[in-house]
Design a protein around this nucleic acid. Structure first.
Length: 718
DNA sequence: GAGTTTGAAACT
DNA sequence: CAGTTTCAAACTC
């Protein structure tokens, strides 16, 4: 599965590729002095790896065929049932090398670490239990798992736990032959359990290296191992170009810390994803924080943004910068937690990072911990807002729970290399979710999670104890046809009417926007979960024809030009570019030099355009006024009922019908009749009689009004 | 709602 | 790359 084609690596972000910016240890490569012979010889030459401190009192082979004593059963059920942690190949070997003293780093080293180097193209930073990453071609999934203490019972082949100085380190090696991971724990001033006070701020290093068929190195820098006590790591300036998490842990007062590294590799030998996890073992429960690094490509990214990750119940949005392109997607109570990163300099390239989280078991105490900060190098996408999205809960194996029909993942968990879409050009908002297989990717269409949420939120909310569903914010949407994000978000997508395209061509707006068809009028629709294979093929076909097929057409113009312009320009012949046939006009932008239109009237000084715009504005104002009026009326009606209900019983704030009783009405009528009789008696003309009656009616009303403020019933006397 | 027009996407 | 066809949305009646 060519997750990352070689030619696409050149598109990787500068920050990622810039190894100079990566915090690397300068220590010369050191061999594992006591490399256990359990390591499986790799078919490939071992990739040199760099380590910091190699006072190695213990080396543990992490190969799946390691001796039972070298394995650990530290992984909890929730972890081991996760597909991403399932080892499928036994060739990957990792050596966990804890330091002698508790203050010494713990380093995972390959079994054959004789030629360690520091030529990593990327860095993964893990600070205080959070994750980071920035490998040349990887994404990260941050994984948080909480489990009860008793859950540590599942033995996981290829997983090793070491407890240096009271800390436990677990490593699960998953991957193809020859892949290695180096995990180096930071210096820790205080042992777990002693955990009083602040953790040391100096960053420690936590490295993940890949050896074997690939030569890229994936060091992971750990700012500070998660302490049992509350700790906040500080990040060095050198880490600015790395994804970082400063995690403040409040989980437990004392408990061992475990780190899990997993690496899932697809059947073609390319790394699919790497997980780095830590496990905080508290008095009552464990908290797993792990990341999954998914190989990917990305466009150059410049900005550094910050993400704050809360606990499993957190519902706050990651406070990214103003042009956020990270969306938190979470399911309270679910084991999976997703964060969608939109990595696009022009709002067109998207990368999804999925956070994988397991909530506490019902028997465990509520987790009130894990407020983490992630500093990520993420390109800015224009005018992005964020929305909490609640996807369907996932099972421990990474599959969506299907509470409604066909809630399957789009891309099969089994590899489909021939249709694996280019991850940099997936439809907007595409979500990569862990599949059921070891290397399973799930390519969810843009907003699919939202779609799921919209249809299933009530269930989720009710089951997860969301107190206020209305608190969900509007999901960020990519500029659609040039509309602003808010416009696109507020306006429901129009249902398509496709008949012949199976909704798998760009003719279909749903497909073009990376969405599933939902509530559409299409026939023979394949743009759904039932036809995930066909859809994936269609996506690939579109990308083959046009690698930017799913990128927004409305992008930033050149310097000095309009802020927004159509990337390709229109080709109108008859519409004068003043009808919605014209994509420029539809996007409410003027035609530019890139357009090939004939008879264009969609330019700045065009009188026709001005007239149309004026009319359109007027119409819009009318619509807004009508909407506002309706809203106000609805509000008033609602308010009327709200205020009326208590007034009837309480007597306060009385409404007219509470004092214009039947008796009052009858009395009023009697007064009016009497007035009419008097007019007849004095033989007044009809006009005068009517005036007398009206005047009497006015007096009656005045008496009614004056009586309204009194608690007793009004009396009407003529 | 049916039919027509239009231009992007797809195809050759 | 250009010409043609297909397609679905926009538009008209």
């Amino acid at each position: 599965m060519d997750v990352v084609s070689p030619e696409l690596n050149i598109l990787l972000p500068d920050e990622i590729m810039d190894t100079e910016a990566i915090v690397m240890d300068d220590d010369p490569p050191a061999e594992s002095p006591t490399a256990s012979g359990q390591s499986q010889p790799s078919d490939d030459a071992p990739i040199p790896m760099e380590t910091d401190v190699l006072a190695v009192p213990e080396i543990v082979s992490l190969c799946s065929d390691a001796t039972p004593t070298q394995r650990t059963q530290a992984l909890t059920t929730s972890i081991t049932t996760d597909s991403t942690l399932c080892s499928t190949t036994s060739a990957t070997q990792l050596l966990l090398t804890p330091s002698i003293a508790s203050s010494s780093p713990l380093t995972l080293r390959p079994a054959t670490a004789s030629t360690l180097t520091s030529t990593s193209p990327g860095v993964v930073s893990l600070t205080s239990g959070g994750l980071q990453k920035l490998s040349a071609n990887h994404q990260i999934i941050l994984n948080k798992v909480a489990s009860s203490p008793g859950a540590d019972t599942t033995r996981s082949p290829g997983t090793t736990t070491i407890t240096p100085g009271g800390q436990k380190f677990m490593v699960t090696a998953i991957g193809k032959s020859g892949q290695s991971i180096v995990l180096q724990l930071p210096h820790t001033g205080s042992k777990p359990g002693s955990g009083q006070g602040e953790a040391k701020a100096h960053p420690q290093h936590f490295k993940v290296l890949t050896i074997g068929g690939r030569t890229d190195l994936k060091p992971v820098m750990v700012g500070q191992a998660v302490s049992s006590a509350s700790q906040v790591s500080t990040l060095q300036a050198q880490q600015l170009k790395t994804v970082q998490i400063a995690k403040k842990t409040q989980v437990s007062s004392a408990g061992p810390i475990k780190f899990i590294i997993t690496k899932a590799v697809n059947n073609k030998g390319l790394t699919a994803q790497t997980s780095v996890s830590n496990v905080i073992t508290g008095n009552h429960h464990h908290v797993f924080v792990s990341c999954v690094i998914i190989e990917r490509t990305a466009r150059p990214m410049k900005p550094v943004q910050t993400v704050t990750v809360g606990g499993p119940q957190f519902k706050t949005i990651f406070p990214l910068s103003t042009s956020s392109n990270v969306q938190q997607i979470q399911v309270p109570g679910s084991r999976f937690h997703y964060v969608r990163l939109v990595t696009a300099t022009t709002g067109s390239t998207f990368t999804i990072v999925c956070f994988h989280m397991t909530s506490l078991p019902s028997t465990a105490k509520p987790m009130v911990v894990n407020t983490a900060q992630v500093r990520m190098s993420v390109p800015i996408i224009p005018a992005q807002t964020m929305k909490q999205v609640v996807p369907k809960p996932l099972t421990s194996s990474g599959q969506l729970l299907t509470t409604q029909t066909q809630q399957r993942l789009i891309m099969p968990a089994t590899p489909l290399p021939q249709i694996q879409p280019n991850l940099t050009n997936l439809p907007p908002g595409t979500v990569l979710a862990p599949g059921s297989g070891n290397m399973g990717y799930a390519v969810l269409p843009a907003h699919y999670v939202t779609q799921l949420q919209q249809s299933a939120y009530v269930t989720l909310a009710s089951s997860s104890g969301f107190p206020n569903p209305t608190g969900i914010q509007t999901q960020a949407r990519l500029p659609l046809n040039g509309l602003s994000t808010s416009d696109a978000a507020s306006r429901p997508r129009k249902p398509c009417n496709c008949n012949k395209s199976q909704c798998l061509k760009l003719y279909c707006d749903c497909f073009a926007n990376g969405e599933f068809c939902q509530n559409c009028n299409c026939t023979n629709c394949f743009n759904n979960l039932e036809h995930e294979t066909e859809r994936a093929k269609a996506i690939k076909a579109c990308l083959d024809r046009n690698p930017e097929a799913f990128k927004p057409k409305i992008g930033k113009g050149k310097e000095g030009e309009s802020d927004r312009r159509h990337s390709k320009g229109c080709n109108c012949k008859r519409s004068g570019c003043l009808k919605n046939y014209c994509e420029c006009y539809e996007a409410k932008i003027m035609c530019s030099s890139t357009c090939k239109c004939v008879g264009c009237k969609n330019f700045e000084e065009s009188p026709e355009r001005k007239t149309l715009m004026h009319l359109a504005d007027a119409a819009e104002v009318r619509v807004q006024q009508q909407t506002a009026a309706k809203t106000k009326l609805s509000s008033q009606i609602s308010d009327l009922f709200t205020r009326t209900t208590p007034s009837i019983t309480s007597g306060g704030g009385r409404m007219p019908f509470t004092f214009v009783t039947k008796e009052v009405a009858e009395a009023t009528c009697e007064c009016l009749l009497e007035q009419a009789e008097q007019a007849e008696l004095i033989q007044q003309p009809q006009a005068t009689a009517e005036r007398m009656i009206l005047e009497e009616f006015g007096r009656c009303l005045m008496r009614i009004i004056s009586s309204a403020g009194k608690t007793d019933c009004p009396s009407i006397n003529c």
